[in-house]
C-alpha cells in the first residue's frame, strides 16, 4: 500500500514543480548560450537577465516544493479529500510515511535540479579553478577535498530544509487538532516548532563553546572565523539535525496515528 500511496503523492507534487524545473533549465541554458556569444553586448545583457531569471526559478523550485508538500498533506489529511484518505484500507502510519518520503524524494530531485542549473550557468574551466582556489584553504584544514567540503555544506543545508519540512508537519498536525483557527494555529505551531530547536541548537553550540575555545571565539567575535570551529559545528549540525528530524518524525507519526478530527 505504501508504494501505491507514494506513487500518487509523488505524481501530485512533481506535477506542480515540474514546470519550474523545466523553466529553470531552459532559462539557464538560454542564458549560458547567449553569454557565450562574443562581442555582443545586447545578447550578453539578455543572457544575464536569463541567468537572473533562472536563479529566481531555482529559489522558486525549493520554496514551491516545500509549500506544495505541506498543502498536499493538509488537503489529503484534513480537508474534503481526507474523507477518502482516511477511509482507504491503509494505516495512518503508512499515510504519514508516504507523505514524508514523497516530500524528501521530491526535495532531493529539486536539489539535483538546482545543482544542474548552477552548472549550466557557470560551469567552465576558469570558474572551477576559481572555486577550487577559494575553497582550497578551507578544504585543506578539513583534511578533505574540495568536493568533500562542498558535500558536507550541502548535506547540512539539505538537512536544514528537511528539518523545516518536519517543523511544518508538526505545526499542521497540532494546529489541525484544535477546534477553531486551524490554519492560523498550524502556522504558529510550525513557526514555534522551527524556532525552539534552532534556539536549542545555539544553546548547544554555546555549551560546546564552554569546552572548546575556538567555538566560543566564533560566538564572541565577528572578525576572525576559525575554520576548525566551523568544521566542528558542521559535524555537530549534521548530528543535531538528524536527531531533531527523527524526533519530529516520531512525534508526528504518534500524534497522527492517534486519529484526526476533520471538519
Amino acid at each position: 500500500m505504501l508504494g501505491k500511496l507514494l506513487k500518487y503523492d509523488l505524481k501530485w507534487t512533481y506535477k506542480g514543480v515540474m514546470v519550474f524545473y523545466i523553466l529553470a533549465i531552459i532559462f539557464s541554458t538560454i542564458g549560458r548560450l547567449l553569454s557565450e556569444i562574443e562581442n555582443s553586448l545586447i545578447f550578453n545583457i539578455i543572457g544575464q537577465v536569463c541567468i537572473g531569471t533562472a536563479v529566481a526559478m531555482v529559489v522558486n523550485v525549493l520554496i514551491n516544493n516545500l509549500i506544495r508538500v505541506w498543502v498536499r498533506f493538509i488537503r489529503n489529511s484534513y480537508k474534503d479529500e481526507s474523507y477518502l484518505t482516511h477511509t482507504l484500507p491503509v494505516s495512518k502510519k503508512t499515510i504519514f510515511l508516504s507523505k514524508v518520503l514523497s516530500a524528501i524524494i521530491t526535495m532531493i530531485t529539486s536539489a539535483v535540479i538546482i545543482v544542474v542549473c548552477v552548472a549550466i550557468c557557470y560551469y567552465s574551466q576558469e570558474s572551477i579553478e576559481w572555486v577550487k582556489q577559494s575553497l582550497e584553504f578551507v578544504a585543506s584544514t578539513y583534511n578533505s577535498t574540495v568536493v568533500g567540503f562542498l558535500l558536507i555544506v550541502t548535506v547540512v543545508l539539505f538537512l536544514e530544509m528537511i528539518f523545516a519540512l518536519f517543523a511544518g508537519y508538526i505545526g499542521i498536525i497540532f494546529g489541525q487538532k484544535s477546534n477553531n483557527l486551524k490554519t492560523g494555529k498550524s502556522v504558529l505551531y510550525g513557526f514555534i516548532a522551527y524556532m525552539i530547536p534552532q534556539t536549542i541548537t545555539i544553546g548547544i553550540i554555546f555549551i560546546l563553546g564552554l569546552f572548546n575555545k575556538d567555538i566560543m571565539n566564533l560566538l564572541n567575535t565577528t572578525s576572525i572565523i576559525n575554520v576548525e570551529a566551523i568544521k566542528s559545528i558542521m559535524y555537530a549540525g549534521i548530528v543535531i539535525y538528524i536527531c531533531y528530524i527523527s524526533i519530529y518524525y516520531l512525534i508526528g507519526k504518534r500524534q497522527f496515528e492517534k486519529g484526526v478530527n476533520v471538519d
Binding site: D80, E81, S82, Y83, L84, T87, L88, P89, V90, S91
Partner: peptide
C-alpha cells in the same frame, strides 16, 4: 484498516481529487 476494507462510505461532500 480492517473496518475500512468492509465499509463503503459516501460522505455528504465531494471528496475526490
Amino acid at each position: 484498516v480492517e473496518s475500512k476494507k468492509i465499509i463503503s462510505y459516501l460522505p455528504e461532500r465531494t471528496y475526490l481529487d
